[in-house]
C-alpha cells in the first residue's frame, strides 16, 4: 500500500506517516516542555529532504494552527496582555516583513541555506546550552533562574539604565510593568526577523525575552507570547506565500495534525514526570541537532554543488 503523499511546492513525495510522526514527535516535546516545536521541526524536515526555504515557510504555516488554539485557551484563562502583545506584534510584523525580504535577497545570492543553518546553530546552541546549564543547576539545588533573578537585582546595569531612561513610557497593567514601548517594539522586531529566517514562531526566543528582559510574570508570558506568535506567523506565512512561493500547505496541514495530537499526549505525560530530567533530555536533543548542523558547516560536504535557495 502506498502511504506517500505528494507535496507540490516541495516537489517531492514523502511518507505521510513520517510527516505525522515528525509533527507528533515535535508536538510531544512541545507539550512536554511548554516550548514551541518549530526550532526542531524545520531542521528535521530539512534532514528528510524538504528544501530548507519550503521547510521554514511551511513550518510557520503550521505554527499558525498551534498558536491559534493556544491563544484562545489562554485568553479564556485571562493570561493574555493584549497591550504588550500588540506592541510586540507591531515589532513582529516589521521584523517578519524585513526577514522575508532578507530571505528573498539571500535566496537571490544563494546564501539562504547558509544563513538559516548558521542562525539555527547559534539559536539552538544558546537555548540548548542554557537549558542544559539550568537543569544541571536545578539538579544541584542551585537554580540558574535564582542566580539570574539575583543578578537582575544588582543595580544598575546598562540595560536597566536604558529601560528607565527611554521616553514614551507605557503602563502594561496585566503584566504589572511600566516601561518605554520602544523596548518591546525592538525585541518584537528581533523575534520577527528570526521567525522569518528560521520558520519558527519565536516562542523559544520570546519567552526568555519576556521573562528576563521585559520582566513579565510567567503566567502572562505564555499567553501573550502565543498571541504575538500567532499574528507574526500569519504575517510570515502570507509574505512567504506571496513573495517566495515557498509555503507547502499540504505539508503544513499534515504537520499540524501530528503536532496538535502529539502536544496533547506530551502535556498529559509531563504531569507524571520529573521536570529536571526531562528538561536535560530536551537540552541534549537540541544540542545534538545543533551539533549535527554545525558539523555540516565544518566538515567537507558530500557535494560541492547545491541548488540555489535550497531548491
Amino acid at each position: 500500500m502506498n502511504f506517500s503523499i505528494y507535496l507540490p511546492i516541495a516537489a517531492n513525495s514523502v511518507n505521510v506517516f513520517l510527516l505525522l510522526g515528525l509533527g507528533g514527535l515535535v508536538g510531544f516535546l512541545s507539550g512536554l516542555f511548554g516550548v514551541g516545536g518549530g526550532f526542531l521541526l524545520t531542521p528535521l524536515l530539512i534532514m528528510f529532504g524538504i528544501p530548507p526555504t519550503v521547510a521554514a515557510a511551511s513550518d510557520s504555516n503550521q505554527i499558525v494552527a498551534a498558536s491559534a488554539s493556544g491563544t484562545y485557551a489562554h485568553y479564556r484563562l485571562g493570561n493574555v496582555d493584549f497591550k504588550m502583545g500588540i506592541v510586540l506584534l507591531i515589532g513582529g510584523v516589521i521584523g517578519g516583513t524585513l526577514g522575508v525580504q532578507l530571505v528573498k535577497i539571500l535566496r537571490a545570492t544563494g546564501n539562504a541555506d547558509f544563513v538559516i543553518k548558521i542562525t539555527y546553530v547559534a539559536m539552538l546552541g544558546i537555548i540548548g546550552g542554557y537549558m542544559f546549564m539550568e537543569s544541571l543547576q536545578s539538579m544541584k539545588k542551585a537554580p540558574l533562574a535564582e542566580e539570574l533573578s539575583a543578578s537582575v537585582q544588582k543595580p544598575p546595569s546598562f540595560y536597566a539604565r536604558l529601560i528607565t531612561g527611554l521616553p514614551f513610557k507605557m503602563n502594561f497593567e496585566k503584566s504589572g510593568i511600566h516601561i518605554s514601548f520602544i523596548i518591546p517594539l525592538l525585541l518584537g522586531t528581533l523575534v520577527g526577523v528570526l521567525a522569518a529566517i528560521m520558520g519558527v514562531g519565536g516562542g523559544f526566543i520570546m519567552v526568555p525575552i519576556m521573562v528576563y528582559m521585559l520582566r513579565m510574570p510567567m503566567h502572562v508570558v505564555v499567553g501573550t507570547s502565543l498571541f504575538q506568535i500567532f499574528f507574526t506567523c500569519v504575517n510570515v506565512t502570507i509574505m512567504q506565500a506571496t513573495f517566495n512561493h515557498t509555503v507547502d500547505f499540504i505539508l503544513a496541514l499534515i504537520l499540524l495534525v501530528g503536532s496538535s495530537c502529539g502536544a496533547q499526549i506530551g502535556a498529559r505525560i509531563s504531569k507524571r514526570l520529573k521536570g529536571d530530567q526531562i528538561k536535560i533530555l530536551l537540552a541534549v536533543i537540541i544540542l545534538v541537532v545543533m551539533i549535527q548542523m554545525l558539523l555540516g558547516l565544518v566538515l567537507s560536504p558530500k557535494l560541492l554543488l547545491s541548488y540555489k535557495g535550497g531548491h
Partner: peptide
C-alpha cells in the same frame, strides 16, 4: 493562497484544540 493557508490552519488548530480540549503548545 497565503491567506487561504492561514485561514485553514487557524480553523484546523482551533478545531483540534476543541477536540482535545487543548490549551496549545509553546
Amino acid at each position: 493562497y497565503g491567506i487561504l493557508a492561514v485561514l485553514i490552519a487557524m480553523i484546523s488548530g482551533l478545531l483540534i484544540g476543541i477536540v482535545f480540549s487543548s490549551k496549545g503548545g509553546h
